[in-house]
Design a protein around this nucleic acid. Structure first.
Length: 804
RNA sequence: GCGGGUGUGGCGGAAUUGGCAGACGCGCUAGAUUUAGGAUCUAGUGUCUUCGGACGUGGGGGUUCAAGUCCCUCCACCCGCACCA
């Protein structure tokens, strides 16, 4: 009787579902483990073979932890709001909600068919009003604490589509749909002040067990840089402006200043003669897309404003230019240009024939900018100093004269939180006719998304919600004042910023989650998902979490203690899977042909979890072959237990069994599933060679296999004479003393090359070992005519003889 | 350009503190079994070889009794950021 995966998998999935085998017990006295997957966006395409990779990893971890006696929280939910559903609604006139519901049903069926041990009683969906009530609640708290504000910022505006687009909808400066041009347009938008948390987001990375590469990406994204703010006066104006510089020591070399074209002072200071040129340049820059702006990176452009700034340290008049290489969004939107010691300024100065003054010796400024360290020259009181002393010397001077101060700037910008979209959480804000803005009172939350028969862009740049007067217009019942609801909705990131908190207490109607329960389950012990979320999702979620920590809602500073990014599964030709290439593998097909256990095993065996590995049908067959081999070793053709299985203890498999328990336990703990599985294979290979199989080893093996191939393991466990599930059977232990053998093999090297091997007692002394090695026949013949200079003995491993 | 990473058989990949390179799987070869098999079991499988051995972890150099592992240098590929003052 062979392993019938269709029947066995169905049987145990039904059992788990009926028995609620994986329900997490909140009142448990056991130590907790919280194993979390990045929940999916339920797209219309259904599950991809990439999804089960990370899910299997956390599932193996969760199943092992249950057997090791932990209380495990392992939930799953849906990141349900998203652009494709809205686009679908616009195209077909159907409801995005119904569309998403259907997709969720498909995802859920597919995920359940893979046999993951989720506690389905905790399933959540970000589009459920009972869920987004709390997303909105968090927003109102952010607003109350001054962390949500409105500001005029540049957005991707597509005139042809009459709507604002998210960055991911803009490809090469054109709209993803239709290929229409997209321009940057200033619009009033909701922003979240993530920059207020920049320092903490940076600093607290230290204590996280995350891949160093991800931490680095976050560090770069936050982009902290230390320097100084310097105040410049202006010739003929009372106005002052500030610049940020990391090199205040080079202030004597500042020969001009550059404003961003969007800088608010530009209009005021531009002289009559330069006015037309400046306005033309500003217009040109405004209509450029991000892509065009970066495309022109090689060729600097700019225009002189006609105005002059006063260098605060030597009272020199320097011209003020505008150029798009200075960004309004970083620092103060204005720079002091030191062409001798900054590559960008150098390039600009050469192009526009501006003076270049050396203030740090060591380079050749007639050829290129010198950004290295060196002795200061042409810098009055800084002359002769090195870079570090000159920086602090200049800052001291500026601070004494109130012309500047030490300053830290971040690359991180505030988070553009509004989308002019229908399919998202409504931002719970009312704009009143008297100009006031209030949040929707907490007792009126959730502010539900109205059902709309037709979802189409408003044409004004507002979301489709602006087309719904019943929803948009409100009147204060007490004062009769009229108001208008905010029509923007939240970005998809919002719901995923805190979903892991809701899993802890998914049905709570009074609060986001019970603080006692949060205290029990937080932080997340292991969080696995794709590296594409390395920065945004993880940074946003950390930001919200820290805010919630500050207002006393959550008990931990950080949400995710350990993070791991699974790699990508590529097509057989080593290319990304895509519909157009026709190399997409559908998990449904694999489950039907090979079974869920095979898919799980194969995906874990392909290679290290974080590597990008190509799909291989042969490899998949191999995974199935291994499970068949396991089955046949234990179950006979007639469906009986193999006669090789004996109650009697037997020393022949003892060592390999204990090795297997040790290696599998350690490897699974460290997410090294490929090597753990290879050890399971080694055990089975030995099992085939053995004449007798002690039943206790077989049972231990089935337990070790069960996190990877749970259906097969449950079935074998039952056939071994047990009742109920294997899921909470104690994880096997191993005995270190069984791992050491009485005799060990020693390698004898001559000049580092292996010439002979010896079998010796494990407790042999160094001297004896050396003696035996030198007496060995092969060694003797090799040493003929040579003098032994030195013998290195590594007990238990090798002897190396140096001779010439 | 900056930051991070990777490079090992025909292929995916293993290799504590430097200590037998190539575990395990795929593929391939042979034998057994079978009416037959693209099934199963067993064995073999880095390259070259005069069968002694020699060579071999992207290239070159170094440290060491000993290097895939440490150091220097070069090359290739991947990921992220990209005028961040």
């Amino acid at each position: 009787m062979s392993f019938d995966h269709q029947q066995v998998e169905k049987k145990w999935q039904t059992y788990w579902h009926k028995e609620k085998t994986f329900k997490a017990n909140t009142d448990s006295e056991k130590e907790k483990v919280y194993a979390l997957d990045m929940f999916p966006y339920p797209s219309g395409a259904g599950l991809h073979v990439g999804h089960p990779e990370g899910y299997t990893a956390t599932d193996i971890f969760s199943r092992m932890k249950r057997m090791q006696g932990y209380e495990v929280l392992h939930p799953m939910g849906w990141d349900a709001f998203g652009l494709p559903a809205e686009q679908y609604a616009i195209d077909t006139g159907n409801s995005p909600e119904a569309f998403t519901e259907t997709n969720i049903a498909t995802f859920k069926r597919q995920i359940q068919e893979l046999g993951f041990s989720y506690d389905w009683d905790r399933e959540i969906s970000t589009m459920d009003p009972n869920y987004y009530k709390w997303t909105q609640w968090i927003f109102t708290k952010l607003y109350e604490h001054g962390l949500a504000y409105m500001d005029e910022v540049a957005v991707n505006w597509c005139p042809a589509l009459g709507t604002v687009l998210a960055n991911e909808e803009v490809i090469d400066g054109k709209s993803e749909r239709g290929g229409h041009p997209v321009v940057r347009k200033p619009m009033k938008q909701w922003m979240l002040k993530i920059t207020a948390y920049a320092d903490r987001l940076l600093k607290d990375l230290e204590e996280l067990d995350w891949p160093e590469s991800i931490k680095d990406m976050q560090r770069n994204w936050i982009g902290r840089s230390e320097g100084a703010e310097v105040t410049f006066g202006m010739d003929g104006h009372d106005e002052e402006f500030t610049v940020f510089t990391t090199r205040p020591d080079t202030l004597f070399g500042a020969t001009y200043a550059v404003f961003s074209p969007e800088h608010p002072l530009v209009e005021q200071i531009t002289t009559e003669a330069q006015k037309r040129a400046v306005e033309a340049y500003q217009h040109e820059v405004a209509t450029k897309s991000e892509l065009e702006r970066t495309d022109l990176a090689k060729n600097k452009t700019g225009v002189f404003t006609g105005a002059y700034a006063i260098n605060p340290v030597n009272q020199q008049k320097i011209p003020i230019w505008i150029a798009d290489y200075v960004l309004m969004s970083y620092g103060s939107g204005a720079i002091m240009a030191v062409p001798a010691h900054d590559e960008r300024d150098y390039e600009f100065a050469v192009k526009f024939d501006l003076p270049i003054v050396e203030v740090v010796a060591g380079g050749d400024i007639s050829k290129e900018a010198y950004t290295g360290e060196g002795e200061h020259v042409n810098s009055e009181f800084l002359n002769g100093l090195g870079t570090a002393e000159a920086i602090s010397g200049m800052i001291d001077r500026l601070e004494r004269e109130s012309k500047g101060e030490k300053k830290v700037t971040y690359r991180l910008r505030d988070w553009l939180f509004a989308r002019q979209r229908y399919w998202g959480e409504p931002i719970p804000i009312i704009h009143w006719e008297d100009g006031n803005t209030t949040t929707v009172p907490e007792e009126e939350l959730p502010l539900e998304l109205p059902e709309m028969t037709e979802i189409k862009p408003s044409g004004t740049g507002e979301s489709p919600l602006a087309n719904n007067p019943d929803w948009v217009n409100v009147t204060d019942p007490e004062t009769g004042m009229k108001g208008r609801r905010e029509t923007s909705t939240m970005p998809q990131w919002a719901g995923s910023c805190w979903y892991f908190l809701r899993f802890v207490d998914p049905d709570n109607t009074e609060q986001l989650a019970d603080p006692e329960l949060l205290k029990k389950w937080l932080p997340v012990d292991i969080y696995i998902g794709g590296a594409e979320h390395a920065v945004l999702h993880l940074l946003y979620a950390r930001f919200w979490h820290k805010f919630l920590y500050d207002i006393g809602v959550v008990p931990t500073k950080e949400p995710f203690m350990k993070l791991f990014n699974q790699g990508m599964i590529l097509g057989e030709g080593n290319e990304k899977m895509s519909k157009s290439k026709g190399n997409v593998v559908n998990p449904d097909d694999i489950i039907a042909s090979h079974g869920a256990d095979t898919l799980r095993l194969y995906e874990m065996f392909m290679g290290p979890l974080d590597a990008a590995v190509a799909w291989s049908t042969n490899g998949l067959d191999g995974a199935r072959r291994f499970l068949d081999r396991v089955w046949r070793l234990i179950v006979t053709e007639d469906g009986e237990l193999s006669g090789k299985i004996t109650e009697v203890e037997n020393a022949s498999l003892e060592k390999v069994y204990h090795e297997t328990v040790k290696k599998v336990t350690e490897d699974f703990e460290n997410l090294h599933f490929n090597t753990g599985i290879s050890q399971l294979m080694v055990f089975i290979n030995e099992g085939y060679k053995a004449e007798q199989l002690p039943k206790s080893y077989v049972e231990g093996f089935v337990k070790l296999l069960s996190p990877v191939a749970p259906h097969l393991a449950e079935e074998l466990w039952e056939r071994l004479g047990h009742q109920g599930t294997i899921s909470y059977e104690p994880w096997p232990g191993y005995d270190e003393t069984k791992l050491v053998e009485d005799e060990v093999e020693i390698v004898v090297q001559i000049m580092g090359k292996v010439r002979a091997k010896l079998q010796v007692p494990a407790d042999i002394t160094k001297d004896e070992l050396e003696k035996e090695a030198l007496e060995h026949e092969k060694v003797q013949s090799q040493l003929e005519g040579k003098t032994v200079r030195k013998v290195i003995v590594v007990p238990g491993k090798l002897v190396n003889i140096v001779a010439n």
